[in-house]
């Protein structure tokens, strides 16, 4: 199955909306998109995985790599996810404590208001 990827600016945030399956075959595409955004100075990322059906360990590695990358640049990474199955993957791996997980893109944006 394919990976779909769209990006848009939401104020200072770059929203990457991902759909399909993030696995060993498709993860490189997501990595490229993240690297391209960060290289362009867009280091406040929101990755929307609402349309993602499956996420394997390679995909998780890309998300963790993205987190390290943006933190190194003083940016942030938030994930939008409400699907039980994907949330379960984050909780099994313990990543629910590492990523900011949100119900929606606006919720992810407003989590940075302080």
């Amino acid at each position: 199955m394919e990976l779909s990827l769209t990006s848009r600016a939401e104020g200072p945030f770059e929203v990457l909306a991902v759909g399909g399956e993030i696995d060993v075959y498709t993860a490189p595409k997501l990595r490229e998109a993240i690297v391209a955004a960060v290289d362009a100075g867009r280091t406040r990322l929101i990755i929307d995985v609402e349309q993602v059906d499956f996420l394997d360990s390679t995909g998780l590695g890309v998300l963790v790599g993205a987190l390290k990358r943006v933190r190194g640049e003083g940016g942030s990474l938030d994930i939008v996810c409400t699907h039980e199955r994907i949330l379960k993957i984050f909780s099994i791996t313990g990543l629910d404590k590492v990523f900011g997980l949100h119900d929606s893109v606006p919720a992810a944006v407003s989590s940075h208001d302080a």
Binding site: T93, G94, V98
Partner: peptide, 16 residues
């Protein structure tokens, strides 16, 4: 049996 666990090794080295 899914006991409470910690992070995968190598994700946040030294912190888990």
């Amino acid at each position: 049996l899914e006991v409470e666990g910690g992070l995968a090794l190598g994700l946040v080295p030294g912190e888990a």
